[in-house]
Design a protein around this nucleic acid. Structure first.
Length: 505
RNA sequence: GGCGCCGUAGCUCAGCUGGUCAGAGCGCUGCACUCAUAAUGCAGAGGUCGGUGGUUCGAGCCCACCCGGCGCUACCA
């Protein structure tokens, strides 16, 4: 089994937002989970650097474009580690390996007869880095966002014959109903294709910053002809001396936001087909994490620096909140206050306190020694594990976490139902008390393993407090894996109370 | 305009192919318990499942229309 997962490459000339952190964190959960199941995984993220604006800003600051790009790529490279995302490779489109491959890739499309020359013309707003149609402008003919007149640009570009791929794309969609998820995104993409496809330009002239086309060095590859290709190019040089394409392509799963659905679900597969590659295995389109009802983005002006939230609650807590607050795949409302509530109610009170009370009882009633006693386990942990795995196979991150949490709640209920403090009063209950304590430790052990993909920092701490193996193999999500051990001490709070819930916003 | 989605308890949302589907979590109230990070457990809270009219023995779940909100309708990360 192979599982290759990608996030979009982020536009470098901006600051990482919570939305970017969201995509990266969720993707990381999916990869970590597959890894626990013994699947051969590869996780890719990175940045897109070849935008006109990057070059222009660099010029304004008197820097070489590459030098400027090197500088602004830093916070992006730090994003994944800061939210506990473990990526296998961080790609930059200015990497030599990427540039080399893009040229090779485009050459194949060219050789296949899918590229032709034509004139592209339109009103272009430099601030937006986009062509504008007249109805997108203000009555005065200005860009509504930047209030400046757009420039009329007319240039000869190369176009990709997307229109020639309509039938093949429809056939692809028909034979693979799960190519795009969720299903409503599949429908959206398919109906777009069915509506007729227009060719799109893949180059820009007169720009020194970018990847020169192999057959015409005076033009550079335009955004999608450059950026999308990263998903394959990375495999050719991420591991020096190794070509990972055979290993991970087409086992690719692309995670992306709904705003770039068309490019990923239509352009990309067509480009791959043209270049002689298999389409990716799956595209998962997620929605927006709306903060206080507004989309989190730089343009909305309410960007939250995810690093600030991490400093207050910790990366695991932030991951947890992002996965649980809204149903993955749909848009959803969330709030900063919600982070605090999740942290206190669920992480601290439900999970953290469960560990505290469990370890405290083992320490107090059994001097830290765990023995298999005589008591039926309250949970079918194997079934729970199967449920979680099945949900994650469907990218149902939110539902998976929900399922684990039912286990957490069930164990808390079990404590109340069995009342170990009552059992401890009478030696006649020894075997039962042992059994109850064992079931708690055993359940918590399995749940820790099940949670490891979501809470990579916390799960090992739970296992350590329980004196259990740090092995995170998915097979350990079942009953009876806990070892009879000694030396269990009352654990320190997993998620301590936070003093200042205010610094978050 | 066309295609599609959504509107379910104060809040955020589950509800697959129609018949325990009127639910979960949070918030709120009361009770229980003491192992635990003043944590946990239990119970309750009486929501015309946006509106109207249909189909059906029976409809949040099917159909029509209406009201309200939204997405896509092409070259923007």
């Amino acid at each position: 089994m192979r599982f290759y997962l990608t996030t979009p490459i982020y536009y470098v000339n901006a600051t990482p937002t919570l939305g970017n952190a969201y995509t990266t964190a969720i993707a990381d959960m999916l990869v970590r989970h597959q890894r626990q199941r013994g699947v051969d995984t590869f996780f890719l993220t990175g940045v897109d650097e070849h935008a006109t604006k990057v070059w222009r800003v660099a010029e304004e600051q008197g820097l070489e474009a590459q030098e400027y790009a090197d500088r602004i790529a830093v916070p992006w490279r730090e994003l994944a580690p800061r939210i506990n995302a473990e990526v296998d490779f961080f790609i930059r489109t200015s990497d030599d390996g990427h540039k080399r491959f893009v040229r090779e890739f485009l050459q194949r499309i060219y050789d296949n007869g899918d590229v032709y020359q034509d004139v592209y013309a339109g009103l272009y707003c430099v601030g937006c880095e986009a062509f504008k149609t007249e109805d997108e402008l203000t009555p005065d003919g200005l860009c509504p966002d930047h209030l400046v007149p757009p420039e009329w640009i007319e240039e000869t570009n190369y176009f990709f014959r997307l229109s020639a791929y309509q039938d093949r794309l429809l056939a692809l969609y028909d034979e693979r109903p799960d190519l795009v998820r969720p299903d409503f995104r599949y429908n959206e993409a398919r109906s777009f294709i069915a509506g007729g496809l227009r060719d799109f330009s893949i180059s820009r002239a007169g720009q020194p910053w970018g990847i020169p086309l192999p057959w015409d060095e005076s033009q550079v590859a335009y955004v999608w002809a450059d950026a999308l290709v990263n998903y394959v190019s990375a495999l050719t040089y991420a591991r020096p001396g190794e070509d990972l394409r055979d290993r991970y392509w087409p086992a690719a799963h692309h995670v992306l936001g709904k705003d770039i659905l068309r490019f990923h679900c239509v352009y990309w597969p067509a480009m791959l087909l043209s270049a002689g590659y298999e389409p990716p295995q799956q595209l998962f389109v997620h929605g927006y994490l709306l903060l206080d009802d507004r989309k989190i983005s730089k343009s909305a002006g309410n960007a939250v620096d995810p690093l600030d939230l991490i400093d207050v609650y910790g990366a695991d807590a932030l991951r947890y909140w992002m996965a649980r607050a809204i149903s993955f795949g749909h848009d959803g409302n969330a709030s900063v206050e919600g982070i605090r509530e999740r942290y206190e109610n669920e992480l601290a009170n439900d999970l953290g306190n469960l560990l505290s009370r469990t370890t405290a009882m083992v320490a107090q009633y059994r001097e830290g020694s765990l023995r298999r006693g005589d008591a039926e386990p309250p949970l079918d942990l194997g079934a729970l594990g199967a449920d979680v795995a099945a949900r994650l196979d469907r990218f149902d991150v939110t539902g998976a976490l929900d399922a684990v949490w039912e286990g957490v709640r069930a164990l808390n209920q079990y404590v109340t139902a069995e009342a170990p403090w009552q059992l401890a009063k009478d030696p006649a209950n020894d075997a039962r008390l042992d059994g109850v304590l064992y079931n708690l430790v055993d359940g918590l052990t399995a749940l820790a393993v099940a949670l490891a993909a979501f809470l990579p920092e916390t799960a090992p701490r739970i296992l350590e407090a329980l004196q259990q193996s740090d092995d995170l193999s998915w097979g350990r999500v079942r009953n009876g894996v806990a070892e009879e051990v000694g030396g269990i001490e009352a654990a320190r709070p997993l998620f301590p109370r936070i003093e200042l819930p205010q610094a978050a916003a």
